[in-house]
Design a protein around this nucleic acid. Sequence first.
DNA 1: TGCCAGGCCGGGT
DNA 2: ACCCGGCATGGC
Length: 212
Amino acid sequence: MAILLEIYKKLYQAFGPQHWWPGDTPFEIALGAILTQNTNWGNVEKAIQNLKNNNVLSARSIYEMSVKKLAELIRPAGYFNVKTRRLKSFIAFFMNEYHGSTKRMKGEDTYSLRNKLLSVNGIGPETADSILLYALEKPVFVIDAYTKRVLSRHGIMEHKKSYDEFQELFHYSLKRDVRLFNEYHALFVKVGKTCCKRKKPLCDNCPLNVNG
DNA sequence: TGCCAGGCCGGGT
DNA sequence: ACCCGGCATGGC
């Protein structure tokens, strides 16, 4: 299955490096992963900026913050009531299990850490894997709506297949490399935003269609 | 101006 | 094991 590597090369040639994740620290990346659930990244940036402007972008600060205050600050990210609960759940887990230290969290075995993250209310497979890959630099491939759309539209895998089935395709086909997984997922988002959009059945000058 | 955005949960079948 | 409604703001 060298096809996945071929696709990667074409996307990289077309779009270049994406410089992900757009966040300064592992903790900020983890928060961003929760805030961006089904949400435009631009809105997430506003929420994170609000936290920064109030000097509360830390586990301890958010842990001690009232629900009302947190909801107010992350409001631009949408679903703010739901996401306030989810941020609180994640940070309670983060404080209890790792004393608010991303280094400690990073030291845990990837497989068991993933299962623990999935047990936190509000963290599903994509959010867990985004934290593992982009915040903790674990070689875990992130599947999202764009990945499914692009692969299904190009006949690589049926859209209805599960998250785990899509992920296995990458894990079995590619070298487990953090840099590769980082760039590849970011490129799926890029191509999904630019030329593989929802309502367009197909697009000309798609870098994956040119030649073959 | 309606559609879309880097999901996930809980209840029902 | 799937299917679905709910959750909400802001940009185009």
